[in-house]
Write a protein that binds this DNA or RNA. Sequence first.
DNA 1: AATTGGCGCAACCGCCACGTG
DNA 2: CCACGTGGCGGTTGCGCCAAT
Length: 219
Amino acid sequence: MEAENEYKKGLWTKEEDRVLLDYVTVHGSGRWNRIPKLTGLKRNGKSCRLRWINYLNPNVKRGDFSEEEEDLIIRLHNLLGNRWSLIAGRVPGRTDNQVKNYWNSHLCKKLGFKKQTPKALSSSSETPKAPDSNSKQSCSCGTSNSVKDMEALQNDQNPLLDDIVAAENSNSNEEIQWMTEHCADSLSCSNGHNLISWGMVEFLQGYPLDLLYQNFESS
DNA sequence: AATTGGCGCAACCGCCACGTG
DNA sequence: CCACGTGGCGGTTGCGCCAAT
């Protein structure tokens, strides 16, 4: 790309934000690589996309994470590992970047997890990048007492977790009811919050029903 | 008051998947 | 079937703020 070096890096200015916002308002999100050409913005498409998703998008919730959000993230992480986009998809108003940052800076510490440093990775015999995209789920953190009740559900080899990825096909109301009845206990919060009321249904909608039966009835 | 170290967050990087011609 | 462009994802970096000394 000949213009690669012309692209600016670093923090975004208010003016750049305004230009990007104007573009998205008129053209909608997508076609990010056209933005520098159409608007004269000295940012590459990727940077524009990220800025929109993580900051400018009005659906993004700012500010501290609530207790409910925190608990949901902990539980989803236990199920899904470091699949931040999947986790963020179940936490309304939060982006994968927010969730990832929050996990690494707050929750790892709070739960007594050891954050895997680049040094630790390089000294490890394992390669930091898995060849298989499925094994991108490299959970760098262990388990803790506060999430011990989830251990029964956690199984890295369990194909069930991978099927959550294909969660966009929604289930019928009866299926959701069955799932909430059978899974809510297993996933219920230690602090008494009701997951059903703040995202559990949406979360469960992603579960393939046959795998749910298999997983929960046999346990 | 100046310095330093830690922390949190925004942004970048590299890889991969998918769509299209 | 293949090459290319684009978008998405997770890991990582770097900067600014703030508390501790």
